[in-house]
């Protein structure tokens, strides 16, 4: 079945910061503020959208349910999907994944580190040749050092305010992240409208960056 392009969008910060770009690209957003609806169909003047948790965006795109996706680079690295195309970067949801602790000194000797980014953390530890146990948490990582669960955390940081409020300091930046536009390879190469939607979003993204 050939339908208009559908974009899977990571809910939360990416969705909020993408909406102005979506409008600038000339696409109406038919949902009202505060709506809890998680999808809308493509129309004549706009792509459709599916709003899902970030890690699910690459899955929907790889399976072809969505033609395009907008998701954080951090999640693309943490949850790699082999059959997607990374076609461009948007200047939204900019953040860093950092190692943080109570003091700025890097770890010395075996230690524990809490993170929701197990793959990124494991690769970072391997690269540094540090011996550590990764404590998997899904949120509120700043609490881990305070409650004695782990003296270090690997987490995303935007301004650093949350870290400061929990008396934590950055030790090292592991990676920079922002939203990426991803595409299903089959839809990308077989449906011209998919490339047009991505181009329009990426173009306004570039203009936003220049401004």
């Amino acid at each position: 079945m050939n339908r208009g392009p559908v974009v899977a969008i990571a809910k939360g910060r990416i969705q909020e910061e993408l909406l102005p770009l979506w409008s600038q690209a000339g696409f109406p957003w038919p949902l009202t503020d505060g709506s809890r609806q998680l999808w809308f169909e493509p129309g004549r003047d706009r792509p459709g959208a599916i709003i899902v948790r970030g890690p699910d965006v690459p899955v929907l795109v790889a399976q072809g349910v969505a033609d395009l996706g907008v998701v954080g680079r951090d999640l693309l690295i943490e949850y790699p999907e082999w059959d997607i195309l990374e076609v461009g970067e948007l200047p939204v949801a900019r953040c860093r994944v950092v190692l943080a602790g109570r003091t700025p000194q890097p770890p010395d000797g075996p230690f524990r580190v809490a993170s929701k980014y197990r793959r990124i953390t494991r690769n970072f530890l391997r690269q540094k040749q540090w011996l550590a146990e990764i404590v998997p948490l899904s949120g509120s990582l700043e609490l881990a050092p305070l409650v004695g669960l782990a003296p270090y955390i690997v987490d995303i940081v935007e301004t650093g305010r949350t870290l400061r409020e929990h008396h934590l300091v950055e030790i090292e930046t592991i990676l920079f992240s922002s939203a990426e536009v991803i595409a299903n390879p089959a839809h990308w190469r077989a449906k011209e409208a998919v490339v047009e939607v991505a181009d329009r979003l990426l173009k306004v993204g570039k203009e936003e960056l220049r401004a």
Partner: peptide, 11 residues
């Protein structure tokens, strides 16, 4: 090369 059917989402 890849052969696609328009709308199928897989090669």
């Amino acid at each position: 090369f890849s052969l696609y059917e328009v709308g199928l989402g897989q090669a």
